[in-house]
Write a protein that binds this DNA or RNA. Structure first.
Lengths: 336, 336
DNA sequence: TTGAAAGCGCTAACAT
DNA sequence: ATGTTAGCGCTTTCAA
């Protein structure tokens, strides 16, 4: 391994000078700087980032904590963070939290051990107190996909209520009057907000949504299928179905066809997230685009900025709005 | 920040003793050990991993380099690595190579700066010489999804030829005689091997595969659609379609239905990879399961093992075999 | 403009 | 069983 000492020796200068050259310090003579640079290149010297971190307490390392990377949504999130990290010349440490408070905490701790001052956290299950405490300790902590008023300027989140309203309004404008909703059994966070948006829109339009027309299940394809089967078994009549997310929507489409109902002719279905799967099903899914990757890049830059405590943080929050993506799973309400 | 010194002072011992307690050294008195442990807990002390890395030259850090995390396949790969890393108590550094030799090299270099001796590399575009050189320099480097005889024991890969043969044989056994293939324009690596497998099977069965029945396109849904349209436009007749991967297969299904052909009644379609999308399309896609996540975990353990140069490496390679997953996109060949 | 030297937090000989 | 001490590779005063 080539160290700064080796470079210094070969270049015939002190290690301090080498260090200065590396850091573009302008207090080095031209000739000297050129010589050192040449030696660095020749020897293929690369500074040891651990040593650097140890003394300077700054690592140019950024951490992400997401529940599970194998889920496309989180893969996109990670990809956005990676992009932001690369653009700012930061390294990326990654940890799965596996949907548990305990492992989430471990993941965060391990990132802190590595001195990364900028952390992007996607937390669904930790309580506000824990998060607040963490935020206090880590200036460069940014929450993605969660809003807490006390640290509003460190939250990068999506307006789920507005998104759900937009989806619902779209269906209403297409003439639908009979709605059903399939949502997640876990009503904390996103599912709750999306349901709220649906309710608001329906109410504004003077439309009913019977409790029986709301079916809860797991937030995946199987859950979507089961929820629709349950709806059908209960004899609920609907021409428009709002799903908590794309996965449930796709499961729903499968179940609908299996029951002899056509999408969108008999039932219109709308999803949420705009994952790649939404272009894989047939009909292609109309859905709300969740700009995760963009949000993640944004959050990364924000986290890096905030980790520099010498800069006064802005006080605004960072709210993104989902966009409707029209594909083929929604049609006008069928005539009676 | 709590350091080892603080702990030592509070516990009334030397830092060496604290260090020993941390490392479960058995040369510490019971009483003393208990006291130190208590102080560590009280103070919330966590060893600084940079300092540790600096002196011990071992970081318990593992790096992965994949082209692009937002693609589900690589998300799964990363997830598998993460699992392996967590189980071995390793931290995970991640870098996208963006499908380019240059950024791939940068990604690797940045991992090395961080002293991570174990690296999982998914490389499609670097040439063998570069890789070989790298392998020589980094004992803990493992190649995933690529085979190089010279470092066979450090390759974790999939038998693409066998997989493609299995898929083809399955179709043959279902009575199909008229085949078409859609593959990637880039024929290096996987696509080439899969095509080879298809050719071998067909030949063995005494079946023809006209060059015109092989269409190249980009390896995604759009590519799949275009390829099938091209096939149809050329007037190629086929009852069985082998796609390079799931994405192309799904695009193909869309194009087939758009052309008034039913899957699987008129045309059977088979994919490769078994991504989540393969369960999203309708009919659900019959495909070859690529155990990426499992392979990635395996590769991780292997990399960690190899990075310990005191252990004599085994000489065998690490070959995985894809499994057929029967879903609904394949049927018996239609009668004439 | 350049160098000498202190020390970041930790591990691992070497002493005791 | 426990303490002392010498660095790991680097940044950063302080001096020259």
């Amino acid at each position: 391994m080539v160290t700064i000492k080796d470079v210094a020796k070969v270049a015939g200068v002190s290690i301090a000078t080498v260090s200065r050259v590396i850091h573009d310090g302008h207090q080095v003579g031209e000739a000297c700087r050129a010589r050192v640079k040449k030696v660095i290149a020749e020897l293929g010297y690369r500074p040891n980032s651990n040593a650097r971190a140890l003394v300077s307490k700054t690592t140019n390392t950024l951490g992400v904590v997401t529940p599970k990377l194998s889920m496309p949504f989180f893969g996109s999130l990670a990809s956005g963070v990676e992009k932001g990290a690369r653009e700012n010349n930061y390294k990326l440490l990654m940890s799965n939290s596996l949907y548990e408070t305990k492992s989430e905490q471990e993941a965060i701790d391990s990132l802190r051990d590595h001195n990364c001052q900028a952390i992007i956290l996607h937390s669904e299950y930790s309580d506000e107190k824990t998060l607040l405490k963490l935020a206090k300790e880590i200036p460069g902590l940014v929450l993605i996909n969660r809003y807490m008023p006390a640290i509003a300027n460190r939250c990068v989140w999506l307006d789920n209520v507005a998104g759900a309203r937009q989806a619902t309004d779209y269906l209403i404008n297409r003439g639908h009057k009979n709605f059903a909703v399939i949502t997640s059994i876990y009503q904390n966070g996103d599912p709750g907000f999306r349901l709220q948006g649906i309710r608001e829109s329906l109410k504004t339009a003077g439309l009913q949504l019977a409790e029986a027309a709301i079916e809860e299940s797991t937030a995946n394809m199987e859950g979507g299928e089961q929820a629709v089967q349950a709806l059908l078994n209960k004899g609920i009549k609907f021409t428009a179905l709002l799903a908590y997310n794309d996965l449930m929507a796709i499961g729903a489409i499968h179940a609908l066809f299996a029951a002899g109902l056509r999408v969108p002719e008999d039932v219109s279905v709308i999803g949420f997230d705009d994952l790649i799967v939404s272009r894989a099903c047939r009909p292609r899914l109309t859905t709300m685009h969740y700009p995760v990757e963009e949000m993640a890049s944004y959050a990364t830059k924000l986290a890096i900025q905030l980790s520099d405590t010498s800069i006064e943080p802005e006080s605004r929050t960072h709210l993104f709005i989902p966009q409707l993506v029209e594909r083929d799973s929604v049609a006008d309400a069928p005539h009676r």
